[in-house]
Simulated assay, not measured.
Amino acid sequence: MRRSERKQQDPDLGVLAGRLLFSVQGELFATLAEQGHAGLRPQHGAVLAHLDVEGSRATDLARHSGQHKQVVGKLIDELETLGYVERRPDPSDRRAKLIVPTVRGLDQMERSDAIVAAIEERAAATVGVAAYASFKALLGQVAAASSSLR
Rank of each mutant, 00 (worst) to 15 (best):
P42R: 00
G73Y: 10
D60F: 07
V24N: 02
A33Y: 02
A30K: 03
S65M: 12
L51S: 10
P11C: 14
L61V: 09
R41H: 08
V71L: 14
G39E: 03
R19D: 09
V47A: 04
G45F: 04
L32M: 07
E54A: 15
L48D: 10
H37V: 02
D52P: 02
L21I: 01
A17F: 08
A33L: 00
D60A: 15
K74D: 05
G45A: 11
L32Q: 08
V47Y: 10
L21P: 02
A58R: 15
G39L: 04
G55P: 08
V72T: 11
R63G: 10
D60P: 00
G18E: 09
G26S: 06
G55F: 10
Q67N: 07
R63I: 08
P11L: 13
D10A: 14
V72H: 10
A58L: 15
A38Y: 05
G36M: 12
E27H: 02
Q70N: 06
G45R: 05
G18H: 10
L16V: 15
P11N: 11
D77Y: 09
K69F: 13
Q70P: 01
L51Q: 01
D10I: 08
D12S: 07
A58F: 02
Q25W: 02
L21G: 00
I76W: 05
P42F: 01
H50R: 13
G14V: 04
E34M: 03
P42V: 02
H64E: 15
T59M: 11
E34F: 08
Q35D: 05
